[in-house]
Write a protein that binds this DNA or RNA. Structure first.
Lengths: 336, 336
DNA sequence: TAGAAAATAGATATCGTTGTCAAAGAATGT
DNA sequence: ACATTCTTTGACAACGATATCTATTTTCTA
């Protein structure tokens, strides 16, 4: 049927073990032997049997993505990035949905990893914010790579984003457009990003000596509905802001709806800014100005880091921070 | 380390092979023996080693999802449904992105399946519309389950939706709201759904003796931009329709933007209807009336069908059609 | 240049299952 | 009662890799 190591070894006239050495990039193989074997591998179109490798070496060549109810578009981008690395390195990706409220989550994940002999995990928000969970994974000797960790001490493998700086810069941009009365809608407190984004906003406000008006600073939970409710609150206050910065696009769309229903013209009377650049941001009218994290690249890097732990990728891959891009669309306008 | 069949067999005082028989639900095991073994399995917390099973039985316990640039939210739902079945049955899901324009696609997929010993595939649009591709897969003896096939003859395993009927019914609903001048935006011709949806619309129009106005029937490609362009065309014609039905939500949002920019009030002067119920449908203002396929359930069923082929699930699972739901939101209003 | 150390290559056991085949026991037919 | 078939069970090989350990060759050191 399919080509095995044995076929390769007789074709190249070496031992089975030597072929194995070449496959696994082990040292102590003479250059001439190595190339001879590689030629045979290519000629015969050999690919190692994953099950056999896995059975013997106790590695599955599977990594898992842990997630809990993320934005669908975010999840798709994350997967996309990871898959690019998997394809190159011969790993497979398994998806594992989690419930972060489950008290027993760490145990069930540890079981999952041991059952399937999962080589490593990639963890995304909000699970990446759960210190206790990450601690237990580490304690069980599980490898994982974190995307936007709240606390970098739990793994040496992570990719972070500059949420604080990006929000600060976007706030500066709003201010540079002449806005002095700016509202803010916070995200779900469970996500560490919520605090980073709020801090970026409030520090910019302070640094430019603008007013902190707590009638316009509303707690949301990243949902469209919470954005809408925030809008209702803000627009029922005595004075209205001229711009509102929401911690994500869904809430921004919610605020926009609330404003439009009250005939507050966006962007002429009110500028609105979101965060994340989801597909919705382009499809609402007026289109949303927003902040775009390079999610695909971040996921790609996180996967490289993790797989590099096992395969020792030659390419230099270290944990690093990615910069977000500020996207100005119709919803943010200069104040006349 | 972990518990093996051998441990179970000595604990239950039977042979290794008998334990294997129990695990695989083979017949010709005495009831007493079976329950004795099951008890030992439970007591010791044994789970079979996937790699060993796979190596020996030539099955990978992996199924793959084939997709090409679908809507992100659709993809997420599809995955969600499949994963529910995988979790129960112990299969894993691998994602495989394809390029339907690639001339060599069928060969590369056949290689992929053979390399990874993939047990079966789940195919979604637009790949599910490519007769030649499906034919070649079948010819290579690959099992697959199709979601919304254009041609049911290629696999006995499929789930379909009632796109034609749903569009017909939604058109009836629009008509029942008093609309007589109704525009339509077609989807990408590569997707068989595009034709089904258009036929549902046009037949309803004809059955109710309404005017077919080809100034208002525009070819789109499912993108937001194409919807916007369609709107521009429609609104530049001499007479305007009072309702527009777009073949998906993105295009509906595009039309809506075009209308709003021209100060055509939605829904007071123009009703707009979409298809798919993506997250955007709720987040635009006014919110989109749309048609919702039970995507998660469809994917779940497709996965059951496929895995049932291998494991002979007891539950009755046959290919079937799922009914879509008509969702009325703010964008569709009775004509005064 | 002898002797030690390092590099290279191979023989064989092994991972944890399932497949094959044979054997023993139970049920059936005549 | 005996031959025949069916049911139930087990012994052992096999799947296709990697690990361990040993043997040989090359390189280095004094």
């Amino acid at each position: 049927m399919s080509v095995t190591i044995k076929d390769v070894s007789s074709h190249a006239n070496v031992s089975i073990k030597t072929v194995s050495r070449v496959i696994n990039n082990e040292k102590n193989v003479a250059e001439a032997t190595r190339s001879k074997v590689l030629a045979s591998i290519k000629k015969l179109g050999f690919t190692p049997n994953k099950s056999a490798q896995s059975l013997r070496s106790k590695r599955s060549y599977i990594i898992a993505l842990l997630y809990d109810n993320p934005n669908k578009s975010y999840l798709a981008d994350i997967q996309n990035g990871i898959l690019q690395v998997c394809k190159k390195t011969g790993y497979n990706l398994v998806l594992q949905e989690c419930d972060y409220k489950n008290k027993n989550l760490s145990n069930s994940i540890i079981n999952f990893v041991e059952d399937l002999k999962i080589d490593g995990l990639i963890v995304i928000p909000p699970l990446s914010d759960m210190d206790d969970f990450l601690y237990k994974l580490g304690h069980a000797n599980i490898h994982y790579s974190i995307i936007t960790p709240s606390n970098k001490k739990f793994s040496s493998l992570y990719v972070s984003s500059n949420d604080y700086d990006a929000t600060y810069q976007m706030t500066e941009k709003i201010i540079s457009f002449g806005h002095k009365k700016i509202g803010f809608i916070k995200g779900d407190g469970m996500h560490s990003a919520s605090n980073l984004r709020f801090n970026g906003f409030i520090n910019a406000i302070d640094d430019y000596s603008l007013e902190r008006n707590f009638d316009w600073i509303i707690q949301g939970d990243f949902s469209f509905e919470s954005g809408f409710q925030a809008g209702e609150k803000i627009f029922s206050s005595a004075e209205h802001p001229t711009a509102i910065f929401a911690s994500n696009d869904s809430m921004a769309a919610g605020v926009m709806k609330s404003a439009q229903m009250k005939k507050i013209l966006v962007p002429n009377k009110l500028s609105i800014v979101g965060f994340d650049d989801t597909p919705t941001a382009e499809q609402v009218w007026p289109s949303l100005s927003t902040v775009k994290q390079p999610v695909i690249e971040m996921a790609l890097h996180a996967a490289k880091l993790l797989i590099g732990e096992f395969d020792g990728l030659t390419e230099e891959t270290v944990s690093k921070e990615f910069k977000s891009e500020i996207i100005i669309r119709e919803s943010l306008k200069k104040l006349k």
